[in-house]
Computed example of a mutant assay.
Amino acid sequence: MRDQNNEYISALKLEDFKILLKEFDIEMDEETQRMVLSIIKNNQFALVHDQYQFIIENYIKKLTSEFTCQKVVVLLNNYFKPLLKV
């Protein structure tokens, strides 16, 4: 099941990611959305292991703001992380 979830995240389309962003009330321009999605897809290990999640947070904070980054962290912890820990 975990491998299927990894594949799901790796194959996640921007359109579906935009839906998640709306559900979590996260606003950012489309280029930033693409970059954040790419960060999530390419750093699944860091999502699973708490001691590395700060790396993702730092990348996102540089792309957005502290406020938006914290909202994205909620998305990561409540949507993506549970998928990867199955």
Rank of each mutant, 00 (worst) to 15 (best):
Q70A: 03
T32F: 00
K71D: 08
K71Q: 14
Y8K: 11
L76G: 02
Y59H: 09
I39G: 05
S65A: 09
L20C: 09
Q51R: 13
S65I: 05
A46V: 02
L75D: 02
F17H: 05
L21R: 07
M35A: 06
T64F: 03
A46L: 02
S38M: 14
I9N: 02
K13A: 11
Q4W: 05
V86G: 05
N77E: 14
N42A: 12
V73N: 08
I55S: 03
N78V: 00
V72M: 06
R2Q: 12
E66F: 00
E31F: 09
S38Q: 13
F45Q: 14
N43P: 04
T68H: 02
T32K: 09
L47V: 09
R2A: 09
E30W: 02
V74N: 14
Q53R: 12
Q53E: 14
T64Q: 00
D29G: 07
K85E: 15
I55T: 07
L12Y: 03
I60A: 01
Q4L: 12
E27F: 06
R2S: 03
N78A: 07
I56R: 00
V48G: 05
D3R: 12
V86R: 04
Q51E: 15
F17N: 08
M28Q: 05
K22G: 03
L63G: 00
N78D: 11
N6W: 08
L75T: 05
L20E: 10
I60R: 02
Q53K: 14
L14M: 11
K61S: 01
K81F: 05
M35L: 13
E15D: 15
E23N: 12
F24P: 01
L12W: 07
L47D: 13
E31D: 14
I9W: 05
L76H: 03
I39Y: 10
I19K: 11
M1L: 08
T68D: 03
Y8A: 10
L12Q: 07
F17D: 02
V36Q: 02
N43E: 12
N77F: 10
M28W: 05
L21P: 04
K13P: 02
N77P: 07
D29N: 15
I56V: 11
N43F: 04
A11W: 01
D16W: 01
F24T: 05
I26Y: 10
N78Y: 08
A11D: 15
N42C: 12
V36R: 04
L12F: 07
Q33D: 07
D25R: 14
D29M: 01
